Computed example of a mutant assay.
Amino acid sequence: MPDLWLPGAERFPLSDPAPTDTQYAPRAIWHITWDKNASADKPVDLVPFNRLVQYFTGGGKSAAPHLLWDPFTGRTAQFYPASSRAKSVVDAPGGTRTNRTGRVCLQIETLFFPHCRVVGKTYATVRDTPAKGLDKILAWTRSWGVPDAWPMGSPSWKADRSQSTWETKGGHYGHSHVPENQHNDPGPMPNWPGTTPKPKPVPPLFPGRTAFGAGKSNESVLLLGQQLVRRGYGRHYRMGPSRQWGEADRLNVADFQRAQGWIGPDADGYPGPETWRRLFS
């Protein structure tokens, strides 16, 4: 059985553990403590770790997570075993019990607020921090079956909540993803295997104007037609795009060019470098 307590974490067990709803897939929820308000112009020193430990074992028990993590030192404190629910998300009546959703529902509070200052340096997001100890936390979440993926996408400062995704997919969630909640933390998080954004595809090089026109048949004509269809400019095709240039290709290109605000010779239906660039951007 995986470890109920993160190896190496300081233990501060609270006296009211409770079971999770194990019919749901395992997950982890990420937060930031956001205990100060700062700005790029007015950074504020990071709050001491021990002060947050005192809070979660005292007056803040009703909002205690599983883990408190300091990404600058790697220090961690744990308040509930993995098999228990924690209390860092709102659990409104009805729907899923958001504090309990999952075979495990591991809640991690990162000691952080935007534009905190540590040893004279200011950090805008958790992604900017050294993220010390993150590898150990991820090894622990994986041991409980939590996939590395973000089912609702890597967190930003914008809320993106889906009840159906929450109920059906395991993985990592930001507080900004949890149904019934209003907080939009943790903001951008470090990338880890399985969550690194895919590189944007490189658009194909423009093959030159001579690739298009009456009698032309080549892969560039087909590629052009396929992209026109993807962008919603394929209404003149009867059978779909092909390698053979035809009047339907010209009319579809002209539709796209007019959509750019071009008129006259600039919307003649024959692709030039700028038409190609915009079509594939």
Rank of each mutant, 00 (worst) to 15 (best):
V89N: 06
Y123Q: 00
E109P: 04
N99K: 11
V89I: 10
R85D: 11
T141I: 12
A139R: 05
T125C: 08
S162A: 13
K158Y: 15
L111N: 14
K87L: 13
A139H: 06
S84R: 11
Q163M: 13
A86E: 06
F113H: 15
G145L: 00
R127G: 13
L106K: 08
S84I: 15
H115M: 05
R97T: 09
T98W: 11
T141S: 07
G102A: 04
W140Q: 07
S154V: 09
F112Q: 06
F112T: 07
V89C: 01
G95H: 13
K87V: 03
V118I: 05
V118D: 08
A92T: 07
N99W: 14
A159H: 09
S88C: 15
D128L: 04
D91R: 08
K158A: 15
G145F: 03
S156L: 12
S154Y: 12
C105H: 01
A124K: 01
A159E: 14
L138S: 03
A159R: 07
S164D: 10
T122F: 05
F113T: 07
V126T: 02
G133T: 07
R117C: 08
Y123L: 03
D148L: 06
T125L: 11
T110R: 11
Q163H: 07
V119M: 02
T98I: 06
S164I: 08
A149N: 14
T101F: 10
R97P: 03
G95R: 10
C105Q: 07
R117K: 14
R85V: 12
R85F: 08
S156H: 09
I137M: 10
F112N: 10
A92P: 10
K87R: 13
P93S: 04
K121A: 01
A159C: 15
F113A: 11
V104P: 07
T98N: 10
P93F: 11
W166L: 04
R100K: 01
V104K: 14
V146N: 08
V118H: 14
T101H: 13
P114Q: 02
L111D: 04
R127Q: 15
W140L: 06
D91E: 13
P93M: 04
V104D: 09
R161N: 08
A92I: 13
S84D: 12
V146M: 06
S164E: 12
S154K: 14
T125Y: 05
V146E: 02
G133H: 12
A92K: 12
F112E: 03
T122M: 13
V104Y: 12
Q163L: 07
D128A: 05
A159S: 14
W150D: 04
R103E: 09
Y123G: 01
W166Q: 12
I108P: 00
A139Y: 07
S162T: 09
Q107R: 01
Q107S: 11
P151N: 12
K132M: 04
R97E: 00
Q107K: 00
L111G: 12
W144F: 15
I108R: 06
K121S: 00
V90E: 15
A149D: 14
K121M: 01
D160L: 07
T110D: 04
V118C: 09
R127E: 06
W157V: 10
S164T: 03
T165I: 14
V118A: 02
A139V: 06
V89T: 02
A149Y: 09
S164K: 02
T98K: 10
R97V: 00
